[in-house]
Write a protein that binds this DNA or RNA. Structure first.
Lengths: 169, 169
DNA sequence: TTCTTTGTACAGTTTGAACTGTACGTAATA
DNA sequence: TATTACGTACAGTTCAAACTGTACAAAGAA
C-alpha cells in the first residue's frame, strides 16, 4: 500500500486500544474500565473528564464513574496543576507492577483464603462424621470429606505455582 | 456446639459448593457454570439433567445449556450406561490439569497472540511515520510508538512469568 | 406402525450492568 | 456577596445475559 491515509494514526491508535484492552480484561478489568485505562495510558498528558468523554464518546458521568473505579484499583492517579480548576487524571506508568504483580498477589491471597475456609469445613465435618450411625449418610460424609481434601490440595498447588513467579520483574 | 443438626451434611455441602465455586470463577467460569461443575464434582456418581435440575433448583433447559458449556470447556464428560436412556454426565477428575494447567496455557497463548498483533501495528506505524512532515503529528506518532514498545515488553513479561510455572504438578 | 421418553430450539420474561441527562452541592472567581 | 464552573448523586432507560415453559425432533418401547 502506497496510499497515504490521513487517518492512519487514528486507525492504529484505535486498533492498539482495542488490542491492549483485551489483555487488561484478562486481569479482570471490565471492558469499559480497560478501554478507559488504555485511553489514559496512550495519552501522554493528564486528561480531564471532558477530554475522556470526548475521546470515548460517552457521557461525563460515565467517565466520572469509570475513573473512580480505576482509582480504587490503584491504576490511575489524580494530578494537580496550579491555576487549573478541572481534575486531571493519568494512568500509572509501570504496567508490570500495576497489573502482573498485583494480580499474582491477588490470586495467592484468594487461594490461601479459600483453602482456609475449606479447612474449617473439613474440621467441622470430621468432628461430626462419627455422629452418623446411618450407614448411607456415613458414606456420603466420607465421600465429601475426600473431595474437600482434593480441593485443599488444589488450592495448595495454585498458591505454590504463583509463588514461583518473581513478582518484581 | 453439642447440637446434632440433622442437616449438618447438607449445610457443609452447600458451603463447600459456594466456596469452591469462587475459586473456579477466578479461572473465568461464570458463576452458574462454576456452581454446576462443583455440583457434579461433589456428586460421586454421574448425574442426569433431571438430577442436576433438582439439585440446583433450576430448569432442565438451563442444565442442558450449562452442561454444554462445561463440555465445550472440557470440564465435564458424557458417560454411557447400558440400558439407560438418559444422558449421564460427570466432572473430570484431575482439577489441576483441568484448570490450572489449561489456564496457564490460555494466558500464554493470549499473551503471545496480543504481542504479535501489537508487533504488526508497530511495524505499520514505523513504515508510515516518516510520511509526516507535520511536526505535531510526528510527535504523536513517536509517542504512540514508544507506548507500543512498552506494551510489547509487558506481554513478554507475562509470557515469561507463566512460563516459569510447571504445568504438570 | 404408534406411543412414550428425552434433549434441545425457540420465544418471552426477568434481572443486573452500563449509560444518559438532570439536578444539586461545593469551591473558585468576580 | 453573587455568579460561575465543576464533579457526582440520582432516577430513568437500554441492552445483554440467564432463566423458564412450550413445542418439537429424535430415538426407544410396545
Amino acid at each position: 500500500m502506497v496510499t497515504n491515509d490521513p487517518h492512519i494514526l487514528e486507525t492504529i491508535h484505535t486498533k492498539v486500544t482495542h488490542e491492549f484492552s483485551k489483555t487488561l480484561e484478562m486481569f479482570g478489568l471490565s471492558p469499559q474500565d480497560a478501554r478507559l485505562f488504555v485511553t489514559l495510558y496512550l495519552h501522554q498528558t493528564p486528561m480531564t473528564l471532558d477530554e475522556m468523554s470526548e475521546a470515548l464518546g460517552k457521557s461525563k458521568t460515565a467517565m466520572s464513574n469509570g475513573v473512580r473505579a480505576l482509582l480504587d484499583q490503584g491504576l490511575v492517579e489524580r494530578v494537580w496543576k496550579k491555576g487549573f480548576r478541572k481534575d486531571l487524571y493519568q494512568a500509572n506508568e509501570n504496567l508490570y507492577r500495576n497489573f502482573m504483580s498485583s494480580y499474582i498477589k491477588k490470586w495467592q491471597e484468594a487461594a490461601i483464603e479459600q483453602k482456609n475456609s475449606l479447612n474449617v469445613m473439613e474440621e467441622e465435618l470430621k468432628s461430626r462424621i462419627q455422629d452418623y450411625s446411618d450407614q448411607e449418610k456415613m458414606q456420603l460424609a466420607d465421600d465429601l470429606y475426600h473431595r474437600i481434601e482434593d480441593m485443599i490440595s488444589f488450592h495448595e498447588w495454585i498458591a505454590q505455582a504463583f509463588d514461583g513467579i518473581d513478582p518484581e520483574r
